[in-house]
């Protein structure tokens, strides 16, 4: 006996474990995804392939098919989704933040913005955005940063660093720390001032979301930790809701496909690569 719990024998321990099976938590995956209590409006639940609430200071990861639509939602206004995407077929092709800002001639992520790899292709496209408070400059927090700011950075401690969590997420897909490039983050905005100062914007408030479309099979890594420039001395981050459903990759009928000549060529490169692979 441990307190009121009988775990003295194998059978008693088994009964104790099984009695917990129907419990719920504020942060958990919903399986099957169609059973999500928070299915997005207008989405047929049977099309859902991923439904989860990511804990504050938690992370998640998934391999998703080409065409998958991925919604990240900032439930409370305090989430911050640090995102990395990789070509699931050849994961050394991965998010390149510099190209993602340079090729579209635009530093600030928003609806229509492509997330580009270093191979001249589009990994994913931001297709909807009700927040407009994002950042592609600051990356995620490192261990060193969080130790200085909060006193601890351990992934299972009170103030995990984004880098530590993305490392764990990547390991689960055979990726090592050297596979992790700079990441982008959603829901806590940063703007560059005239003198170059990185100015913290904070969030657009509770209930905003961002939709990404996977333009090829992707490994998606997400860490939900405070933005490194978050001015609060406490470690404040809210839950992050994730839903994904079957859909179509971007095509010529989409406005963002040909929004600029550079982007159109990036989509052409992507299709060229996938068609040769039989996808």
């Amino acid at each position: 006996m441990v307190g009121a719990r009988d775990t003295a024998s194998v059978l008693a321990a088994r009964a104790d474990a099984r009695a917990q099976g129907s419990n719920v938590s504020d942060w958990m995956p919903y399986l099957p995804a169609a059973s999500s209590p928070f299915a997005p409006e207008g989405v047929d639940p049977s099309a859902l392939v991923w439904a989860e609430t990511v804990a504050p200071g938690g992370y998640t990861h998934k391999v998703v098919a080409r065409g998958t639509r991925l919604r990240l939602e900032d439930v409370t206004g305090d989430a911050c989704a640090h995102v990395l995407v990789f070509n699931a077929l050849e994961p050394w092709e991965r998010l390149n933040v510099a190209d993602t800002q340079k090729i579209p001639w635009q530093a600030y992520l928003g609806a229509g913005h492509p997330l580009l790899s270093g191979e001249g292709r589009v990994l994913a496209t931001v297709v909807a955005d009700t927040s407009a408070h994002h950042d592609a400059f600051c990356g995620t927090s490192s261990d060193e940063w969080n130790v200085v700011k909060y006193g601890d950075a351990a992934p299972q401690g009170p103030s995990p660093s984004g880098r530590a969590l993305l490392t764990l997420a990547g390991v689960k897909h055979g990726l090592t720390p050297r596979d992790l490039p700079p990441s982008v983050s959603f829901f806590q905005g940063v703007r560059v001032e005239d003198d170059g100062a990185l100015a913290w914007q904070g969030s657009a408030g509770p209930g905003t979301y961002v939709d990404l479309v996977a333009e090829m099979p992707l490994i998606v890594l997400v860490a939900n930790v405070p933005h490194p420039l978050d001015p609060r001395t406490d470690y404040v981050v809210g839950p992050l809701r994730v839903h994904a459903w079957r859909g179509d990759p971007s095509g010529p009928a989409d406005e963002h496909y040909s929004a600029s000549p550079e982007r159109e060529r990036a989509y052409l490169n992507t299709t060229d690569y996938l068609e040769a692979r039989g996808l």
């Binding site: 474990a17 917990q20 099976g21 938590s25 919903y30 804990a55 992934p155 299972q156 490392t167 090592t176």
Partner: peptide, 30 residues
């Protein structure tokens, strides 16, 4: 999640500790 249910997915585990500590020595899930 197998032993106790999906509500435990964000609870801590030894494998996370192992992976985090192993990565400091260049080791991975393999």
């Amino acid at each position: 999640t197998l032993r106790y249910g999906h509500h435990t997915a964000y609870q801590h585990g030894c494998r996370e500790n192992f992976l985090a500590e192993a990565s400091r020595h260049g080791l991975t899930s393999r």
